[in-house]
């Protein structure tokens, strides 16, 4: 009896230690960073102003697919994907897919002249104080979130996207 109890005590103590250490190792070596927006999450709402000074709120786009892109003029890969994005925007606009391109805290003027030069037709939003960028946990840009009609993030990508890929993505979020 005593012997059996002792075995149980030993097993319980060892199990607790192994689970605790295992969990620590898991969070340290394998787990993703917490607190940033991931695929599967509900896209947090935000309100930003576009270049014309209009307020744009994400929630107003419920029912539409949103291609949420974070970019800046100093980011070459961001610039590379802009023409393709614009092309696909024109194609999918009427099919219920919207592009929101959030400029990461650059002066309005810089963003504006860039948009003029590249003749972009989709709305460009200004994130003056990096507020939304931080809220979404965006680090190195470009970063694109694909948000479906229910406001759920179905994909997050960190690459510069080609026309084909953008096309594919837009199909995915087409309502």
């Amino acid at each position: 009896m005593k012997k059996k109890n002792r075995l149980i005590v030993r097993t319980v103590i060892l199990a607790i230690v192994f689970i605790a250490v295992g969990y620590t190792f898991y969070t340290n070596f394998f787990a993703n960073e917490s607190g940033i927006v991931q695929a599967g999450d509900q896209a947090p709402n935000f309100i930003l102003t576009d270049l014309e000074g209009n307020e744009v709120e994400l929630e107003d786009y419920r029912g539409k697919g949103v291609f949420l892109n974070f970019w800046a003029t100093y980011c070459e890969p961001c610039k590379d994907e802009m023409p393709a994005m614009d092309k696909k925007y024109k194609e999918y606009k009427d099919k219920g897919v919207e592009i929101l391109a959030v400029n990461v805290s650059e002066p309005k003027l810089t963003a504006e002249s860039f948009v003029d030069r590249y003749k972009l037709s989709f709305p460009v939003l200004l994130d003056k104080s990096n507020d939304v960028t931080n809220h979404y946990g965006v680090g190195p840009i470009p970063v694109t979130f694909l948000i479906d009609k229910d406001g759920q993030v179905i994909r997050k990508t960190q690459a510069s996207l080609s026309e084909e890929v953008i096309d594919d993505y837009m199909k995915q979020i087409q309502p």
């Binding site: 003029t73 100093y74 070459e76 805290s105 002066p107 003027l109 810089t110 002249s113």
Partner: peptide, 22 residues
Amino acid sequence: EVMDYFPDFEFNDKGEPTTKSK
């Protein structure tokens, strides 16, 4: 009139004026 502004000016490899950072 300010036509364009580059906070951290340089020419990129295509020879366009651009900015390195904000």
